[in-house]
Design a protein around this nucleic acid. Structure first.
Lengths: 253, 253
DNA sequence: CAGTTTCGTTAACGCCGTTAACCGTAAACG
DNA sequence: CGTTTACGGTTAACGGCGTTAACGAAACTG
């Protein structure tokens, strides 16, 4: 689905194709356990390394590009899996998406590290921007919003929030991100941050392996973390149903 | 405090000193923002890179060694700060230790990544061992145990735990770790894992910068995460007092 | 003292990111 | 249409990396 109508000139089409190939080859390298390097990518494309500098201005930018695309592709996978449940059941969808997120992180720890554990320096504005356009972030935020529309779970009013947090939810770094949420409801974003922090924590812990492998294999830590969030999201009534979906999804490998 | 009485022979003493210098120089390099490399370490010691192979069998092992020692040193710092509160106030000590852990992670993200975000492959037994001897892990476990001795907060009985988790808490990977906890009380370790996962999550999120910098600066995400754990640890009565300590410690930079 | 182990050296291999100089060809333009 | 420009590639080279091999001196051991 080409959202950009038609890249007009032939050169631009070719260039776009080369970008796609760079990403594809990079993903392939990572999947094989090799490490991502300009020379390896170029080599597999039948080019020499310096040629890649026509497309990317540094190794770090290649990493960023690949990370962004991996995030996009992975999110599409989770979304597809979640859509086994109807659109009016966002709680079920979020459950499935979280499990798939974890399974992706466990199955592809190198990719996960690239996308989610890649350190971003304080000053680096460019990479921060990429972060705020994160596809997965948008998806999880949307699901949380849809849940709220149904359960109306409580979230802090703006005047209850710490001033700095208030500012941060009112004017996110990239405006486009949450334009659709009216100012009075921005307290929702605080819930999102807190929930994301919990999810991120347990998944990163497991994906990087800083944990007893048996505990990881059991999935209990992840399960318990997710269940803790049913109540805050107003899903107490759905508890047994969601738990069933969660366990079924975990069992699916 | 040399726990090994006297390294006996002169050679062994020299060797030990060289190890210490390797670690010291490595820490120095990291602190300067340079990256850790065999050549850089060797160079600064007035040696050539291959010489380091007499002490370490690979670059990864150098990283592990340095990570272990950084963890030890950092834990000593947090412990020293926490000991501003008396031994019979483990809740206050844990609060301070957690804040100091976070501040260390924010001030030295490279060191934090080395110690806590370094991916450990499933199969790699050697590195797993190092992990289970983690100094910081011991310290936090101990503090949690001391809190339990006072508040007797509830934890799952062994027969309530998932069988895999039961096995994991009964026979930790390295036995020496929690010998002092009687079998019936091993459910405590489950609480430890859950709390550690939450702490690890928010600190990793902040340290790697995958977050709005203003949110990080405010410390609110971290604060909220910690406060959520007061109730489960039976510290509801101490809530205002602990909150005060937490805020004071956060304000201390 | 002779023999052996320990700890360092130099040289070299094959990677890596990055830069500079160069060149054919495809697009853009008068 | 021919000319010019800019794009997308090349080769060569620099400095840095982890790692191995061959070698030597100095320190311990009997």
């Amino acid at each position: 689905m080409p959202h950009l109508p038609a890249p007009a000139t032939r050169r631009e089409r070719q260039r776009e194709a080369t970008y796609d190939e760079i990403v594809a080859v990079s993903a392939q390298l990572l999947a094989e356990g090799a490490d991502l390097s300009l020379r390896a990518v170029a080599g597999r494309m039948g080019m020499t390394a310096p040629a890649l500098y026509r497309y990317v201005e540094s190794y770090q930018q290649l990493v960023d590009l690949v990370a962004f695309e991996l995030d996009k592709a992975a999110t599409a996978e989770w979304r597809a899996a979640a859509e086994r449940f109807p659109a009016d059941d966002p709680a079920a969808r979020l459950t499935v998406a979280c499990v798939r997120f974890r399974q992706w992180a466990l199955a592809k720890p190198r990719e996960f590290a690239l996308v989610f554990a890649n350190p971003i320096a304080e000053a680096d504005t460019h990479r921060r921007e990429l972060l705020t356009v994160s596809t997965s972030g948008h998806y999880f935020t949307d699901l949380l919003g849809e849940i709220w529309e149904r359960t109306r779970f409580p979230y802090p009013r703006l005047d209850e929030l710490d001033p700095v947090i208030r500012e941060a939810v009112l004017e996110p770094l990239i405006p486009a991100k949450s334009d659709h949420i009216p100012a009075e409801e921005r307290g929702l974003l605080w819930i999102y941050m807190r929930a994301w922090s919990a999810l991120y924590g347990v998944v990163t812990l497991e994906s990087t392996g800083h944990c007893d492998p048996r505990v990881i294999a059991s999935g209990q830590l992840f399960r318990a973390t997710l269940l803790d969030w049913l109540a805050p999201l107003g899903l107490d009534d759905d508890r047994t149903r969601i738990t069933g979906i969660l366990d079924a999804e975990l069992a699916r490998d």
